[in-house]
Nucleic acid binder design. Sequence first.
RNA 1: CGGGGAGUGGCGCAGCCUGGUAGCGCAUCUGGUUUGGGACCAGAGGGUCGGAGGUUCAAAUCCUCUCUCCCCGACCA
Length: 444
Amino acid sequence: MYISKSFIPILKNIPSEAKIKSHQLMLRVGMIKQSSAGIYSWLPLGFKIMKKIEKIVREEQNKIGAQEILMPTIQSSDIWKESGRYEDYGEEMLRIKDRQNREMLYGPTNEELVTDIFRSSIKSYKSLPQLLYHIQWKFRDEIRPRFGIMRCREFYMKDAYSFDINDEEALFSYNKFFLSYLKTFKRLNLTAIPMAADTGPIGGNLSHEFVILAETGESKIYADKRIFDLNSDGTELEKNSLDNLRKKYEQFYSVTDEKFDKQEFEKKVSEKNQIKTKGIEVGHIFYFGDKYSKSMEASVDLPGGKKDYVKMGSYGIGVSRLVGAIIEAKYDEKNEIMKWPISVAPYDISIIPMINKNDSSALNKANNINLELEKNNIETIIEDTDENFSSKIKKMNLIGAPYQIIIGKQTDGDLLEFKEVGKDSQKLKLKEIVNIIKKEKVKN
RNA sequence: CGGGGAGUGGCGCAGCCUGGUAGCGCAUCUGGUUUGGGACCAGAGGGUCGGAGGUUCAAAUCCUCUCUCCCCGACCA
Protein backbone atom coordinates (compact mmCIF):
# COMPACT_ATOMS: atom_id res chain seq x y z
CA MET A 1 0.00 0.00 0.00
CA TYR A 2 1.21 3.46 -0.90
CA ILE A 3 0.61 6.05 1.77
CA SER A 4 -0.31 8.53 -0.95
CA LYS A 5 -3.16 6.30 -2.09
CA SER A 6 -4.32 5.14 1.30
CA PHE A 7 -7.27 6.30 3.32
CA ILE A 8 -5.30 6.93 6.47
CA PRO A 9 -6.15 10.45 7.52
CA ILE A 10 -3.40 11.46 9.91
CA LEU A 11 -3.80 14.42 12.22
CA LYS A 12 -1.04 16.42 13.79
CA ASN A 13 -3.26 17.82 16.50
CA ILE A 14 -4.86 15.52 18.98
CA PRO A 15 -8.64 15.97 18.98
CA SER A 16 -9.53 17.41 22.34
CA GLU A 17 -12.21 14.88 23.20
CA ALA A 18 -9.71 12.04 23.40
CA LYS A 19 -8.44 11.59 26.93
CA ILE A 20 -6.62 8.28 26.88
CA LYS A 21 -3.83 7.26 24.61
CA SER A 22 -5.64 4.58 22.67
CA HIS A 23 -8.41 6.96 21.78
CA GLN A 24 -5.92 9.64 20.86
CA LEU A 25 -3.87 7.40 18.64
CA MET A 26 -6.91 5.93 16.97
CA LEU A 27 -8.15 9.37 16.02
CA ARG A 28 -4.77 10.72 15.04
CA VAL A 29 -3.99 7.93 12.71
CA GLY A 30 -7.51 7.66 11.37
CA MET A 31 -8.46 4.23 12.62
CA ILE A 32 -11.95 5.24 13.64
CA LYS A 33 -14.36 8.09 13.24
CA GLN A 34 -16.99 8.85 15.81
CA SER A 35 -20.49 8.80 14.47
CA SER A 36 -22.33 9.62 17.68
CA ALA A 37 -21.67 9.12 21.38
CA GLY A 38 -20.18 5.68 21.81
CA ILE A 39 -20.72 4.70 18.17
CA TYR A 40 -17.89 4.58 15.69
CA SER A 41 -17.10 3.88 12.08
CA TRP A 42 -14.01 1.83 11.49
CA LEU A 43 -11.71 3.22 8.83
CA PRO A 44 -9.36 1.03 6.81
CA LEU A 45 -6.44 0.99 9.23
CA GLY A 46 -8.48 0.27 12.32
CA PHE A 47 -10.68 -2.21 10.56
CA LYS A 48 -7.70 -4.12 9.25
CA ILE A 49 -6.31 -4.51 12.74
CA MET A 50 -9.64 -5.53 14.20
CA LYS A 51 -10.07 -8.17 11.51
CA LYS A 52 -6.70 -9.64 12.36
CA ILE A 53 -7.61 -9.83 16.01
CA GLU A 54 -10.88 -11.45 15.06
CA LYS A 55 -9.06 -14.05 13.02
CA ILE A 56 -6.91 -15.06 15.95
CA VAL A 57 -9.88 -15.21 18.26
CA ARG A 58 -11.71 -17.37 15.73
CA GLU A 59 -8.80 -19.75 15.28
CA GLU A 60 -8.47 -20.28 19.00
CA GLN A 61 -12.19 -20.95 19.32
CA ASN A 62 -12.05 -23.51 16.57
CA LYS A 63 -9.11 -25.22 18.23
CA ILE A 64 -11.18 -26.16 21.25
CA GLY A 65 -13.95 -27.49 19.10
CA ALA A 66 -16.29 -24.55 19.15
CA GLN A 67 -18.41 -24.08 16.06
CA GLU A 68 -19.08 -20.71 14.55
CA ILE A 69 -22.57 -19.47 13.88
CA LEU A 70 -23.95 -16.02 13.20
CA MET A 71 -26.96 -14.75 15.05
CA PRO A 72 -28.75 -11.52 14.17
CA THR A 73 -28.17 -8.21 15.88
CA ILE A 74 -31.92 -7.60 16.17
CA GLN A 75 -33.82 -9.95 18.43
CA SER A 76 -37.43 -10.41 19.37
CA SER A 77 -38.40 -9.53 22.92
CA ASP A 78 -40.29 -12.82 23.26
CA ILE A 79 -37.33 -14.95 24.25
CA TRP A 80 -36.14 -12.29 26.68
CA LYS A 81 -39.52 -12.36 28.34
CA GLU A 82 -39.20 -16.11 28.63
CA SER A 83 -35.90 -15.89 30.46
CA GLY A 84 -37.15 -13.02 32.55
CA ARG A 85 -34.37 -10.70 31.50
CA TYR A 86 -36.53 -8.38 29.42
CA GLU A 87 -37.37 -6.56 32.61
CA ASP A 88 -34.11 -7.24 34.43
CA TYR A 89 -31.71 -5.94 31.84
CA GLY A 90 -32.95 -2.42 32.21
CA GLU A 91 -32.04 0.73 30.37
CA GLU A 92 -28.90 -0.70 28.93
CA MET A 93 -30.91 -2.64 26.41
CA LEU A 94 -31.85 -0.73 23.31
CA ARG A 95 -35.49 -1.47 22.62
CA ILE A 96 -36.99 -0.94 19.21
CA LYS A 97 -40.43 -1.36 17.73
CA ASP A 98 -40.92 -2.55 14.20
CA ARG A 99 -43.69 -1.35 11.89
CA GLN A 100 -46.10 -3.96 13.22
CA ASN A 101 -45.43 -2.54 16.65
CA ARG A 102 -43.64 -5.69 17.72
CA GLU A 103 -41.11 -5.26 20.48
CA MET A 104 -37.62 -5.88 19.21
CA LEU A 105 -34.22 -5.14 20.66
CA TYR A 106 -30.65 -4.74 19.53
CA GLY A 107 -28.87 -7.65 21.18
CA PRO A 108 -26.59 -6.80 24.09
CA THR A 109 -25.73 -10.49 24.45
CA ASN A 110 -27.12 -13.75 23.15
CA GLU A 111 -27.88 -16.29 25.86
CA GLU A 112 -31.57 -16.34 25.02
CA LEU A 113 -31.16 -16.51 21.29
CA VAL A 114 -28.59 -19.27 21.36
CA THR A 115 -30.62 -21.24 23.89
CA ASP A 116 -33.57 -20.99 21.56
CA ILE A 117 -31.47 -22.26 18.69
CA PHE A 118 -30.13 -25.06 20.81
CA ARG A 119 -33.41 -26.29 22.22
CA SER A 120 -35.11 -26.45 18.86
CA SER A 121 -32.62 -28.98 17.54
CA ILE A 122 -30.73 -30.79 20.25
CA LYS A 123 -32.77 -33.37 22.09
CA SER A 124 -30.31 -35.99 23.26
CA TYR A 125 -27.39 -36.14 25.63
CA LYS A 126 -25.60 -37.92 22.82
CA SER A 127 -25.30 -34.62 20.98
CA LEU A 128 -23.48 -32.99 23.85
CA PRO A 129 -21.32 -31.14 24.47
CA GLN A 130 -22.05 -28.30 22.09
CA LEU A 131 -19.88 -25.23 21.94
CA LEU A 132 -21.24 -22.47 19.75
CA TYR A 133 -19.84 -19.03 19.19
CA HIS A 134 -20.34 -16.04 17.01
CA ILE A 135 -18.58 -12.78 16.40
CA GLN A 136 -21.10 -10.05 16.02
CA TRP A 137 -21.90 -6.46 16.87
CA LYS A 138 -23.55 -5.84 20.21
CA PHE A 139 -25.25 -2.78 21.55
CA ARG A 140 -25.38 -1.79 25.17
CA ASP A 141 -26.78 1.63 25.87
CA GLU A 142 -24.10 2.65 28.31
CA ILE A 143 -25.02 5.41 30.70
CA ARG A 144 -21.85 7.19 29.82
CA PRO A 145 -19.81 5.97 26.91
CA ARG A 146 -16.21 7.10 27.09
CA PHE A 147 -12.61 6.40 26.19
CA GLY A 148 -13.35 5.93 22.52
CA ILE A 149 -13.63 2.33 21.60
CA MET A 150 -12.93 1.11 25.13
CA ARG A 151 -16.31 1.87 26.55
CA CYS A 152 -18.62 2.42 23.67
CA ARG A 153 -22.19 1.48 23.03
CA GLU A 154 -21.83 -0.48 19.84
CA PHE A 155 -18.99 -2.95 19.95
CA TYR A 156 -17.73 -6.06 18.25
CA MET A 157 -17.60 -9.11 20.45
CA LYS A 158 -16.99 -12.79 20.29
CA ASP A 159 -19.46 -14.62 22.46
CA ALA A 160 -19.51 -18.35 22.91
CA TYR A 161 -21.95 -20.64 24.67
CA SER A 162 -21.49 -24.14 26.02
CA PHE A 163 -24.14 -26.81 26.54
CA ASP A 164 -23.41 -29.83 28.66
CA ILE A 165 -25.13 -32.75 30.32
CA ASN A 166 -23.95 -32.10 33.87
CA ASP A 167 -21.75 -29.93 36.03
CA GLU A 168 -18.64 -31.95 35.54
CA GLU A 169 -18.84 -31.83 31.78
CA ALA A 170 -19.82 -28.18 31.90
CA LEU A 171 -16.70 -27.35 33.88
CA PHE A 172 -14.69 -29.21 31.30
CA SER A 173 -16.14 -26.88 28.70
CA TYR A 174 -15.49 -23.90 30.94
CA ASN A 175 -11.89 -24.90 31.28
CA LYS A 176 -11.50 -25.30 27.54
CA PHE A 177 -12.40 -21.66 27.16
CA PHE A 178 -10.10 -20.80 30.02
CA LEU A 179 -7.26 -22.30 28.04
CA SER A 180 -8.43 -20.85 24.77
CA TYR A 181 -8.44 -17.37 26.25
CA LEU A 182 -4.94 -17.64 27.63
CA LYS A 183 -3.74 -18.74 24.20
CA THR A 184 -5.66 -16.05 22.37
CA PHE A 185 -4.25 -13.23 24.45
CA LYS A 186 -0.78 -14.64 24.24
CA ARG A 187 -0.95 -14.58 20.46
CA LEU A 188 -1.97 -10.96 20.72
CA ASN A 189 1.16 -10.38 22.74
CA LEU A 190 -0.82 -9.45 25.81
CA THR A 191 -0.43 -10.71 29.32
CA ALA A 192 -3.99 -11.24 30.39
CA ILE A 193 -4.54 -12.75 33.77
CA PRO A 194 -7.70 -14.48 34.88
CA MET A 195 -9.32 -13.05 37.95
CA ALA A 196 -12.21 -14.14 40.06
CA ALA A 197 -15.08 -11.87 39.16
CA ASP A 198 -18.66 -11.01 39.75
CA THR A 199 -21.21 -12.50 37.42
CA GLY A 200 -23.38 -9.42 37.00
CA PRO A 201 -26.57 -9.66 34.98
CA ILE A 202 -25.44 -12.82 33.22
CA GLY A 203 -25.84 -14.67 36.51
CA GLY A 204 -24.25 -17.84 37.82
CA ASN A 205 -21.63 -18.61 40.40
CA LEU A 206 -18.34 -19.22 38.61
CA SER A 207 -16.70 -16.53 36.60
CA HIS A 208 -13.32 -15.22 35.54
CA GLU A 209 -12.43 -11.94 34.02
CA PHE A 210 -9.34 -11.76 31.86
CA VAL A 211 -7.61 -8.50 32.51
CA ILE A 212 -4.55 -6.82 31.12
CA LEU A 213 -2.72 -4.29 33.21
CA ALA A 214 -3.03 -0.68 32.12
CA GLU A 215 -3.06 2.58 33.99
CA THR A 216 -6.11 3.69 32.09
CA GLY A 217 -8.02 0.54 32.89
CA GLU A 218 -11.38 0.81 34.53
CA SER A 219 -11.16 -2.25 36.74
CA LYS A 220 -9.25 -2.11 39.97
CA ILE A 221 -7.35 -5.29 40.45
CA TYR A 222 -5.56 -6.97 43.31
CA ALA A 223 -3.22 -9.82 42.61
CA ASP A 224 -0.28 -11.88 43.62
CA LYS A 225 2.36 -10.89 41.15
CA ARG A 226 3.56 -14.44 40.72
CA ILE A 227 0.49 -15.11 38.63
CA PHE A 228 2.12 -13.14 35.82
CA ASP A 229 4.82 -15.75 35.47
CA LEU A 230 2.37 -18.50 34.66
CA ASN A 231 1.47 -19.72 31.21
CA SER A 232 -0.55 -22.46 29.60
CA ASP A 233 2.32 -24.28 27.95
CA GLY A 234 1.92 -27.99 27.86
CA THR A 235 -1.76 -27.99 28.67
CA GLU A 236 -3.71 -30.64 26.82
CA LEU A 237 -7.31 -30.41 25.76
CA GLU A 238 -8.18 -32.99 28.32
CA LYS A 239 -9.98 -32.90 31.66
CA ASN A 240 -7.17 -33.35 34.13
CA SER A 241 -4.73 -31.20 32.27
CA LEU A 242 -7.24 -28.38 32.00
CA ASP A 243 -8.22 -28.78 35.59
CA ASN A 244 -4.62 -28.46 36.63
CA LEU A 245 -4.21 -25.39 34.52
CA ARG A 246 -7.02 -23.66 36.31
CA LYS A 247 -5.75 -24.79 39.69
CA LYS A 248 -2.34 -23.46 38.80
CA TYR A 249 -3.80 -20.04 38.23
CA GLU A 250 -6.26 -20.15 41.08
CA GLN A 251 -3.60 -20.83 43.66
CA PHE A 252 -2.64 -17.19 43.38
CA TYR A 253 -4.85 -14.45 44.64
CA SER A 254 -6.21 -12.32 41.82
CA VAL A 255 -9.52 -10.54 41.97
CA THR A 256 -11.25 -7.48 40.71
CA ASP A 257 -12.76 -4.79 42.81
CA GLU A 258 -16.09 -6.46 43.52
CA LYS A 259 -14.51 -9.54 45.01
CA PHE A 260 -11.76 -7.77 46.86
CA ASP A 261 -11.38 -8.49 50.53
CA LYS A 262 -8.57 -6.58 52.18
CA GLN A 263 -8.01 -9.02 55.02
CA GLU A 264 -7.96 -12.00 52.72
CA PHE A 265 -5.56 -10.25 50.33
CA GLU A 266 -3.12 -9.41 53.10
CA LYS A 267 -3.35 -12.86 54.58
CA LYS A 268 -2.84 -14.75 51.36
CA VAL A 269 -0.29 -12.57 49.61
CA SER A 270 2.97 -11.51 51.14
CA GLU A 271 3.63 -7.83 50.90
CA LYS A 272 6.32 -8.09 48.30
CA ASN A 273 4.03 -9.99 45.98
CA GLN A 274 1.07 -7.71 46.30
CA ILE A 275 -0.06 -5.90 43.21
CA LYS A 276 -2.74 -3.26 43.36
CA THR A 277 -3.35 -1.65 40.05
CA LYS A 278 -5.78 -1.07 37.26
CA GLY A 279 -6.60 -3.19 34.30
CA ILE A 280 -8.68 -3.52 31.20
CA GLU A 281 -11.13 -6.35 31.02
CA VAL A 282 -10.77 -8.01 27.65
CA GLY A 283 -12.55 -11.28 28.27
CA HIS A 284 -15.06 -12.75 30.66
CA ILE A 285 -16.21 -16.31 31.14
CA PHE A 286 -19.23 -17.46 33.12
CA TYR A 287 -20.68 -20.70 34.29
CA PHE A 288 -24.34 -20.40 35.19
CA GLY A 289 -25.71 -23.94 35.08
CA ASP A 290 -29.38 -24.10 34.20
CA LYS A 291 -30.24 -20.47 34.66
CA TYR A 292 -31.41 -20.10 31.08
CA SER A 293 -32.07 -23.70 30.17
CA LYS A 294 -34.57 -23.97 32.98
CA SER A 295 -36.47 -20.81 32.27
CA MET A 296 -36.41 -21.51 28.57
CA GLU A 297 -37.02 -25.24 28.74
CA ALA A 298 -33.84 -26.40 27.09
CA SER A 299 -33.49 -30.00 28.12
CA VAL A 300 -32.14 -33.21 26.68
CA ASP A 301 -32.96 -36.88 27.17
CA LEU A 302 -30.57 -38.61 29.53
CA PRO A 303 -29.25 -42.18 29.23
CA GLY A 304 -31.88 -43.56 31.62
CA GLY A 305 -34.75 -42.01 29.74
CA LYS A 306 -35.19 -39.05 32.06
CA LYS A 307 -34.80 -35.46 30.95
CA ASP A 308 -32.68 -32.74 32.44
CA TYR A 309 -31.92 -29.13 31.73
CA VAL A 310 -28.60 -28.57 30.05
CA LYS A 311 -25.83 -26.82 31.92
CA MET A 312 -24.60 -23.72 30.24
CA GLY A 313 -21.78 -21.25 30.26
CA SER A 314 -21.00 -18.16 28.22
CA TYR A 315 -17.70 -16.71 27.17
CA GLY A 316 -17.01 -13.26 25.80
CA ILE A 317 -14.05 -11.51 24.25
CA GLY A 318 -14.27 -7.85 23.36
CA VAL A 319 -12.77 -7.88 19.91
CA SER A 320 -13.12 -4.18 19.21
CA ARG A 321 -12.01 -3.30 22.71
CA LEU A 322 -8.87 -5.34 22.19
CA VAL A 323 -7.77 -2.92 19.51
CA GLY A 324 -7.72 -0.19 22.13
CA ALA A 325 -6.34 -2.48 24.80
CA ILE A 326 -3.34 -3.38 22.66
CA ILE A 327 -2.66 0.29 22.07
CA GLU A 328 -2.87 0.97 25.79
CA ALA A 329 -0.34 -1.76 26.33
CA LYS A 330 2.02 -1.04 23.44
CA TYR A 331 1.87 2.62 22.52
CA ASP A 332 4.76 4.77 23.64
CA GLU A 333 2.86 7.98 23.98
CA LYS A 334 5.83 10.13 24.91
CA ASN A 335 7.83 9.31 21.83
CA GLU A 336 4.74 8.82 19.71
CA ILE A 337 5.75 5.35 18.66
CA MET A 338 3.33 2.50 18.17
CA LYS A 339 4.54 -1.01 17.58
CA TRP A 340 1.80 -3.47 16.79
CA PRO A 341 2.41 -7.10 17.60
CA ILE A 342 3.20 -8.71 14.27
CA SER A 343 0.20 -10.99 14.64
CA VAL A 344 -2.21 -8.07 14.27
CA ALA A 345 -0.08 -5.34 12.72
CA PRO A 346 -1.84 -3.52 9.89
CA TYR A 347 1.40 -3.81 7.93
CA ASP A 348 4.42 -5.90 8.71
CA ILE A 349 6.90 -3.34 7.52
CA SER A 350 7.02 0.23 6.32
CA ILE A 351 9.33 1.20 3.50
CA ILE A 352 10.49 4.76 3.75
CA PRO A 353 12.36 6.06 0.71
CA MET A 354 13.88 9.52 0.86
CA ILE A 355 12.39 11.01 -2.25
CA ASN A 356 14.12 13.59 -4.32
CA LYS A 357 12.09 15.20 -7.06
CA ASN A 358 14.87 14.95 -9.58
CA ASP A 359 15.86 11.47 -8.67
CA SER A 360 13.43 8.59 -8.56
CA SER A 361 16.02 5.99 -7.64
CA ALA A 362 14.96 5.73 -4.00
CA LEU A 363 11.35 5.22 -4.95
CA ASN A 364 12.34 2.68 -7.59
CA LYS A 365 14.33 0.84 -5.02
CA ALA A 366 11.36 0.90 -2.67
CA ASN A 367 9.17 -0.54 -5.38
CA ASN A 368 11.57 -3.37 -6.04
CA ILE A 369 11.90 -4.16 -2.37
CA ASN A 370 8.14 -4.08 -2.10
CA LEU A 371 7.73 -6.62 -4.88
CA GLU A 372 10.09 -9.01 -3.19
CA LEU A 373 8.44 -8.61 0.20
CA GLU A 374 4.98 -9.11 -1.23
CA LYS A 375 6.14 -12.26 -2.93
CA ASN A 376 6.90 -13.54 0.55
CA ASN A 377 3.49 -12.54 1.89
CA ILE A 378 4.88 -9.68 3.87
CA GLU A 379 2.48 -6.76 4.06
CA THR A 380 4.03 -3.43 3.32
CA ILE A 381 3.24 0.23 3.40
CA ILE A 382 5.38 2.63 1.38
CA GLU A 383 5.83 6.24 2.40
CA ASP A 384 5.94 7.60 -1.14
CA THR A 385 5.30 11.27 -0.46
CA ASP A 386 8.00 13.90 -0.89
CA GLU A 387 7.72 15.18 2.64
CA ASN A 388 10.66 15.59 4.95
CA PHE A 389 12.37 12.60 6.35
CA SER A 390 11.30 13.36 9.88
CA SER A 391 7.72 13.89 8.91
CA LYS A 392 7.63 10.57 7.10
CA ILE A 393 9.18 8.70 10.01
CA LYS A 394 6.82 10.25 12.52
CA LYS A 395 3.82 9.19 10.50
CA MET A 396 5.07 5.67 10.06
CA ASN A 397 5.81 5.46 13.76
CA LEU A 398 2.18 6.21 14.45
CA ILE A 399 0.82 3.73 11.95
CA GLY A 400 2.85 1.19 13.80
CA ALA A 401 4.26 -1.43 11.46
CA PRO A 402 6.77 -3.22 13.68
CA TYR A 403 9.59 -3.03 11.12
CA GLN A 404 10.95 -0.35 8.84
CA ILE A 405 13.28 -0.15 5.88
CA ILE A 406 14.68 3.31 5.34
CA ILE A 407 16.14 4.07 1.95
CA GLY A 408 18.46 7.01 2.22
CA LYS A 409 21.92 7.97 3.30
CA GLN A 410 22.54 4.76 5.17
CA THR A 411 21.60 2.57 2.26
CA ASP A 412 24.70 0.91 0.99
CA GLY A 413 24.16 -1.06 -2.19
CA ASP A 414 22.53 -4.32 -1.24
CA LEU A 415 22.75 -3.47 2.42
CA LEU A 416 19.55 -1.87 3.55
CA GLU A 417 18.87 0.12 6.66
CA PHE A 418 16.52 -2.10 8.60
CA LYS A 419 14.94 -1.21 11.87
CA GLU A 420 12.78 -3.03 14.31
CA VAL A 421 10.74 -0.30 15.90
CA GLY A 422 12.17 0.62 19.26
CA LYS A 423 15.58 -0.85 18.49
CA ASP A 424 18.69 0.37 16.73
CA SER A 425 18.83 0.05 12.99
CA GLN A 426 21.09 -2.43 11.31
CA LYS A 427 22.36 -3.00 7.79
CA LEU A 428 20.97 -6.15 6.26
CA LYS A 429 20.34 -7.67 2.89
CA LEU A 430 16.76 -7.94 1.77
CA LYS A 431 16.88 -11.70 1.99
CA GLU A 432 17.87 -11.54 5.64
CA ILE A 433 15.10 -9.09 6.34
CA VAL A 434 12.58 -11.39 4.71
CA ASN A 435 13.78 -14.23 6.87
CA ILE A 436 13.55 -12.28 10.08
CA ILE A 437 10.00 -11.21 9.40
CA LYS A 438 8.86 -14.58 8.17
CA LYS A 439 10.25 -16.18 11.28
CA GLU A 440 8.42 -13.73 13.52
CA LYS A 441 5.19 -14.29 11.66
CA VAL A 442 5.42 -18.04 12.01
CA LYS A 443 5.89 -17.75 15.74
CA ASN A 444 2.51 -16.13 15.97
C1' C B 1 -29.70 10.33 35.69
C1' G B 2 -27.09 14.05 39.19
C1' G B 3 -22.94 17.59 38.97
C1' G B 4 -19.54 20.41 35.68
C1' G B 5 -17.75 22.11 30.71
C1' A B 6 -17.92 22.95 25.42
C1' G B 7 -20.09 23.74 20.40
C1' U B 8 -16.49 29.34 15.53
C1' G B 9 -13.24 26.10 8.03
C1' G B 10 -10.73 18.86 8.37
C1' C B 11 -7.87 19.27 13.56
C1' G B 12 -6.32 22.67 17.65
C1' C B 13 -7.84 27.39 19.25
C1' A B 14 -8.71 33.16 19.70
C1' G B 15 -12.77 36.59 19.22
C1' C B 16 -17.97 36.87 23.10
C1' C B 17 -17.25 40.34 29.05
C1' U B 18 -17.30 46.17 26.56
C1' G B 19 -22.76 44.08 19.81
C1' G B 20 -20.64 47.03 14.03
C1' U B 21 -21.62 40.62 9.53
C1' A B 22 -14.61 36.30 11.53
C1' G B 23 -9.05 35.58 12.80
C1' C B 24 -4.57 32.49 14.05
C1' G B 25 -1.61 27.71 13.98
C1' C B 26 -1.77 22.94 11.73
C1' A B 27 -3.82 20.41 7.49
C1' U B 28 -5.26 21.13 2.04
C1' C B 29 -4.08 23.22 -3.16
C1' U B 30 -0.27 25.93 -6.63
C1' G B 31 4.90 27.37 -7.57
C1' G B 32 9.79 27.24 -5.76
C1' U B 33 13.76 25.87 -2.26
C1' U B 34 14.58 21.71 0.97
C1' U B 35 15.10 16.40 2.71
C1' G B 36 18.14 11.77 8.81
C1' G B 37 13.56 12.83 13.64
C1' G B 38 6.65 16.59 12.35
C1' A B 39 11.19 22.18 7.07
C1' C B 40 11.23 27.27 4.52
C1' C B 41 9.45 31.21 1.06
C1' A B 42 5.48 33.08 -1.98
C1' G B 43 0.48 32.55 -3.23
C1' A B 44 -4.62 30.24 -3.03
C1' G B 45 -9.18 27.85 -1.54
C1' G B 46 -12.36 26.73 2.49
C1' G B 47 -16.34 28.72 7.85
C1' U B 48 -21.92 32.94 8.57
C1' C B 49 -20.00 31.11 14.01
C1' G B 50 -24.67 23.66 16.54
C1' G B 51 -30.19 24.80 15.66
C1' A B 52 -34.74 27.77 16.46
C1' G B 53 -36.81 32.11 18.27
C1' G B 54 -36.21 37.01 20.42
C1' U B 55 -33.90 42.12 21.58
C1' U B 56 -31.50 45.78 18.26
C1' C B 57 -30.55 50.13 12.85
C1' A B 58 -27.01 46.02 13.50
C1' A B 59 -25.90 39.57 16.89
C1' A B 60 -20.45 34.72 16.78
C1' U B 61 -21.04 38.38 20.70
C1' C B 62 -27.08 40.01 24.70
C1' C B 63 -31.85 36.98 26.14
C1' U B 64 -35.00 32.35 25.76
C1' C B 65 -35.66 27.53 24.24
C1' U B 66 -33.52 23.31 22.03
C1' C B 67 -29.95 19.69 20.05
C1' U B 68 -25.22 17.59 20.29
C1' C B 69 -20.54 16.44 22.32
C1' C B 70 -16.98 16.10 26.41
C1' C B 71 -15.55 15.50 31.72
C1' C B 72 -16.66 13.55 37.16
C1' G B 73 -19.98 9.64 39.67
C1' A B 74 -23.32 4.67 39.75
C1' C B 75 -23.03 -0.07 35.27
C1' C B 76 -20.10 -3.28 31.67
C1' A B 77 -16.71 -7.15 26.69
